[in-house]
């Protein structure tokens, strides 16, 4: 962890469209281990929000319990945060979103928080297509309790204590595609070039956007034999495509080879350009996405990038047909039917 951070800022630090520097999107000093993958993800979140020129007070960041869930303290210090209880962030985020549909919701979770104790809530937030960016900082182990295997630890992976995991690892991306998620991506904490545009695209996506980020635990799961170590992940990742995020009003300036680039327009008008490494891959096909995940796993490869994307899905508010004005902005006159309506109800019950 870092104990010191310079307080002096260069006066010519770049500013975004709102006039904020990148530092404005930072949070408190991290108390995670030095070299923790989670801190890199926090950095990518800061970078993405800075580049998107998001107003920090329009973001609500929510988390569960664990190393991953501590990180919202370390980014977006000017945003409201909610560190809830273990595995229950999805329900809190659901309630928060129902109350105010106009904020941007960023859910931070870990593999224990999501794939074990929180599996029930995770899958139900998914099937409701809650409009949230849900980042899993996935290191395959429980850090705060000193390195136990988690449910995403791969079968055969060896942990620091030398124990070989006999259980099948849960693939959160595959599960999410199966359960109807509308944006499913996987990335690596060490690949900021890929992670930042993915986060920007996820934040712009209207609906449930899962980013499963492999984020090695330097203290408990970075040993030889682990399939979630820095070395192992670097050696085995295979990207679906290079990802470019193009804001709403910007022109697509880069040249893409015919047939290789797939442009997906998101709900807010921004676009995601996927420069495909396999021309046969279609990001809008659930079946094809599942197939690619399975094939990659058989080859011992970790598939990263956007795996599935369906920009036109209806989110929870659309399904419930809630009022356009946020529910938390409604006043007595909108909500209370008054005494005359109550008199009618009394009369019906006599």
């Amino acid at each position: 962890m870092t104990y010191l951070r310079p307080t002096i800022r260069h006066p010519e630090s770049p500013r975004n469209a709102l006039g904020y520097t990148r530092q404005y999107y930072e949070g408190a000093l991290s108390t995670l281990c030095a070299g923790c993958g989670h801190d890199s993800i926090s950095g990518a979140i800061i970078q993405a929000c800075f580049e998107l020129a998001i107003e920090p007070h329009r973001v609500a960041k929510l988390s569960g319990i664990g190393c991953s869930s501590k990180t919202p303290t370390y980014f977006l210090g000017n945003s409201h945060g909610f560190n809830s209880v273990h595995g229950r962030m999805p329900s809190v985020a659901t309630g928060a979103h129902l109350a105010n549909r106009d904020l941007i919701y960023l859910g931070i979770s870990g593999d224990g928080d999501t794939a074990s104790i929180g599996m029930g809530q995770f899958v139900h937030a998914l099937r409701r297509n809650l409009n949230i960016t849900y980042i899993v900082m996935n290191n395959g182990c429980y850090g705060l309790t000193k390195g136990q295997d988690s449910a995403t630890a791969d079968e055969g992976s060896v942990n620091k204590a030398g124990h070989t995991n006999p259980f099948h690892g849960i693939d959160l991306a595959g599960l999410a595609i199966e359960l109807g998620a509308t944006f499913v991506a996987r990335s690596f904490s060490g690949d900021k070039g890929q992670l930042v545009p993915l986060i920007k695209a996820a934040l712009s996506h209207q609906g449930f956007a899962l980013i499963d980020v492999l984020s090695p635990c330097v203290t408990f799961n970075n040993n030889p034999g682990s399939t979630k170590s820095y070395d192992y992940v670097r050696e085995h990742i295979e990207a679906t495509a290079a990802v470019d995020y193009i804001p709403e009003k910007a022109e697509i300036t880069a040249q893409y080879a015919e047939g290789d680039a797939c442009v997906v327009t998101l709900h807010d008008g921004s676009r995601v350009v996927l420069r495909k490494l396999d021309p046969a891959w279609e990001p809008a096909s659930r079946a094809a996405a599942m197939m690619r995940l399975h094939e990659a796993r058989q080859r011992g490869e970790i598939l990263t990038g956007v795996i599935y994307l369906e920009p036109a899905g209806r989110d929870l508010h659309a399904m419930l047909n809630t009022a356009r004005l946020p529910l938390n902005a409604l006043q007595e006159k909108d909500l209370c039917p008054g005494s005359s309506a109550l008199e009618r109800i009394n009369a019906e019950n006599r």
Binding site: A60, P90, S91, G95, N100, H124
Partner: peptide
């Protein structure tokens, strides 16, 4: 999905200023 989530939704909503 269960009563845990029901209460979580209530708490999330009231944290965010709606009555739940």
């Amino acid at each position: 999905e269960d009563e845990l989530a029901a209460m979580g939704i209530v708490i999330g909503a009231m944290w965010n200023g709606a009555r739940a």
